[in-house]
Amino acid sequence: MLNPKTVLDRFLRRDAPPATPPLEPHDRVVAWATTAEAVAVASIRALWLPPKKGAEGVTGPDGTEWHRLGWSEIHKAVWRDGALVVTTGVEIEPGVVTDGPERRLRLVEPRDLPAEVRTRVTKSVAYTEHHRLSTGGGVRVVARRVPGRDGLTWHLRFDDPSDREVPAARAEAEGLLTEARVSWGDGPAA
């Protein structure tokens, strides 16, 4: 039988994860889940995962290694079949991003981490619009909020990354980006 205090702590989300990442000032844990060998933590500013095998991470106060993903770095997060699948964005040149590698994390006890990750990633997106390009293909114009930073971070995400090398496609995409920034009051007036 569960201790009534444990039940109340879980209901009020006051229980702490078994390991805590090295949080910045004014950051705090908002959700966590256990994996087979470690813990994953969502904070106000980031998703903290165990580092991949052989990869270096940052060390928490208890000596635990962590891999930090800011909410604006995550392109997609899907909860499916007991696993959280996170796809990060990789900047391939200034202002142009593409999908990075997927990170699949099987959660033994998911708690409310998947829902919190989805909420935080969604909230980081201030603007997103997909456009068909006249040269074929498409581009997504995206503006993200970065916790602790003023303003928005704007990016282009081509459906086919090689389209960015086609001068006409690139010029059209840059024009769409400028139009979006101006409409948001975040760019030079035309």
Score class of each variant (00 low, 15 high):
Pro4Asn: 09
Pro4Phe: 03
Pro4Cys: 09
Lys5Pro: 01
Leu8Ala: 13
Arg13Trp: 04
Pro18Cys: 04
Pro18Leu: 06
Ala19Ile: 11
Glu24Asn: 10
His26Val: 06
Asp27Lys: 06
Val29Arg: 01
Val29Glu: 00
Val30Met: 13
Trp32Glu: 03
Ala33Met: 04
Thr34Trp: 04
Thr35Asn: 13
Ala38Met: 03
Ala40Leu: 01
Val41Phe: 08
Ile44Phe: 14
Leu47Glu: 05
Leu49Pro: 10
Lys52Val: 00
Gly57Ile: 08
Val58Cys: 09
Gly63Met: 07
Gly63Arg: 07
Thr64Cys: 08
Trp66His: 00
Arg68His: 11
Ile74His: 02
Lys76Glu: 09
Val78His: 15
Arg80Val: 02
Asp81Lys: 14
Ala83Gln: 14
Val85Ser: 15
Val86Pro: 07
Thr87Glu: 14
Thr88Tyr: 04
Val90Thr: 15
Arg103Lys: 14
Arg104Pro: 03
Arg106His: 14
Arg111Phe: 07
Asp112Pro: 08
Thr122Arg: 11
Tyr127Ser: 05
Thr135Asp: 00
Val142Pro: 04
Ala143Gly: 01
Ala143Leu: 05
Arg144Trp: 01
Pro147Gly: 05
Gly148Ala: 08
Gly151Leu: 01
Leu152Pro: 02
Phe158Leu: 06
Phe158Asn: 11
Asp163His: 09
Glu165Tyr: 11
Pro167Thr: 02
Pro167Arg: 05
Ala173Asn: 09
Leu177Ala: 04
Thr178Glu: 05
Glu179Trp: 10
Trp184Gln: 15
Gly187Val: 00
Gly187Asp: 03
